[in-house]
Computed example of a mutant assay.
Amino acid sequence: MSNLEKDPLELLCPPEGRQGPAVQVLAPREVPLGGPRAMNVRRTLPQRGRTTIGAWCFADHYGPDDVAESGGMVVPPHPHTGLQTVSWLFEGEIEHRDSTGSRELVRPGQVNLMTAGRGISHSEVSTPATTRLHGVQLWVALPDASRDVAPFFEHDEIAPETVDDAVVHVFAGSLPGVGDEASVTLFSPLVGAQIDLPAGGEAWIDLDPAFEHGVLVDAGPVRVTIAATDDEVDDSPADADGLTVAGHAATLGWSELGYLPTGHDGVRLTANDGPVRVILLGGVPFGEEIVMWWNFIGRDHDEIAESRRQWQSEVIGRDNPDGRFGRVDYEGEPLPAPELPTVRLKPRG
């Protein structure tokens, strides 16, 4: 998925200091994708005070949307560099096309992972058969040693596993004690999983203590406990970055993301009167400074500016359509890049 903001922030994302044992609660912000019938997404990464969880650097949560009202997802060809995109659906069907020649549908229970590496372009369009669209779109920052790999695409169907009362789909990396590692290629230690609980259900999910984690709520509320003591503090004041800091437990509402620091070997998820569905993201803290702007990840302002220049010249200006970003088999026009800020990158957050 493209970041379709008309004035995207240019963010310096430094390696972040890690908090103590408290759960941080991150609220989403709404971002419209497109024109007058824009499909709205709820973005929890990046934001002030938390730009990455492991190498996960971007999280959009959308739906359930009535496609007759929203127009569905129509994202024309656009570029990416220095990252991987991960598409995961709860409802609906999306067709992916990219400049490596890949053309693939993604449906619930399946994962599409696209590695942009040194440069790729792709489109994403919900199919005519889709009446409701609902899912998450995630990005992974590639470490410096791997960010110039040749672009490629992978698709896999994910078998469910049972843990206590939960049904778990691990679509990236692995969870301790939960089936085999997902088959898609990663370049840093990560996990991505969907976890479903019935009303009143509970599950203890083993975690890698070297990972930090995020719990993104699609259906809830859900109670998240990361220690034997249950010192939930729902009315804690926000910290300096505007994040709610709870104790060793917190109740997360719809579209909220709970951040769990490293050092925990498990998390208890508890449903109340309704079913719960969460996306669990995790990874070793990403110890590299990155710059994110529009659909590019680089290491400094000049690198981002050069990627934009090449996209505008080679693809939008048709100077070299088979160049760095290649061609997508798509009937419409590609997306032009927004204008860069008039000042050079400055640290934020």
Score class of each variant (00 low, 15 high):
residue 247 G to P: 03
residue 273 D to F: 01
residue 217 V to Y: 08
residue 200 G to I: 02
residue 232 E to T: 03
residue 231 D to S: 03
residue 207 L to F: 15
residue 220 G to V: 12
residue 245 V to E: 10
residue 248 H to M: 10
residue 268 R to F: 05
residue 253 G to E: 10
residue 202 E to R: 15
residue 292 M to V: 03
residue 261 P to M: 06
residue 211 F to W: 07
residue 221 P to R: 12
residue 237 P to D: 07
residue 204 W to M: 15
residue 292 M to P: 01
residue 230 D to L: 06
residue 202 E to G: 12
residue 228 A to F: 10
residue 286 F to Q: 11
residue 251 T to Y: 12
residue 243 L to W: 02
residue 277 R to S: 07
residue 242 G to T: 08
residue 273 D to L: 07
residue 268 R to T: 10
residue 233 V to A: 11
residue 216 L to T: 04
residue 250 A to S: 06
residue 251 T to F: 12
residue 289 E to H: 00
residue 287 G to D: 02
residue 246 A to L: 07
residue 289 E to L: 00
residue 248 H to N: 10
residue 254 W to G: 12
residue 211 F to N: 09
residue 292 M to H: 03
residue 223 R to T: 10
residue 252 L to C: 03
residue 227 A to T: 05
residue 248 H to K: 09
residue 231 D to V: 04
residue 290 I to M: 14
residue 204 W to A: 15
residue 259 Y to K: 07
residue 223 R to A: 14
residue 211 F to V: 11
residue 276 V to L: 08
residue 228 A to P: 11
residue 235 D to C: 00
residue 287 G to C: 04
residue 292 M to A: 05
residue 261 P to Q: 06
residue 219 A to Q: 14
residue 209 P to Y: 08
residue 198 P to M: 14
residue 210 A to D: 15
residue 218 D to I: 03
residue 204 W to P: 03
residue 197 L to P: 11
residue 207 L to W: 15
residue 269 L to G: 01
residue 255 S to Q: 05
residue 289 E to P: 00
residue 287 G to M: 07
residue 216 L to N: 07
residue 273 D to C: 04
residue 231 D to K: 03
residue 196 D to P: 15
residue 268 R to I: 09
residue 224 V to N: 05
residue 228 A to T: 13
residue 268 R to H: 09
residue 287 G to T: 02
residue 258 G to S: 03
residue 243 L to F: 05
residue 235 D to V: 00
residue 263 G to D: 11
residue 216 L to Q: 10
residue 210 A to K: 08
residue 221 P to I: 12
residue 275 P to V: 09
residue 216 L to V: 04
residue 258 G to V: 05
residue 283 G to W: 05
residue 281 L to E: 14
residue 246 A to Q: 05
residue 274 G to F: 12
residue 254 W to L: 15
residue 269 L to Y: 01
residue 267 V to C: 14
residue 291 V to A: 09
residue 202 E to V: 12
residue 209 P to L: 09
residue 224 V to L: 09
residue 278 V to P: 07
residue 267 V to K: 12
residue 280 L to Q: 09
residue 205 I to C: 04
residue 260 L to I: 09
residue 276 V to W: 04
residue 283 G to R: 08
residue 284 V to I: 12
residue 197 L to F: 13
residue 291 V to P: 10
residue 241 D to H: 00
residue 214 G to R: 05
residue 230 D to V: 01
residue 229 T to D: 15
residue 217 V to M: 13
residue 267 V to R: 10
residue 241 D to Y: 02
residue 255 S to C: 05
residue 211 F to K: 08
residue 209 P to K: 08
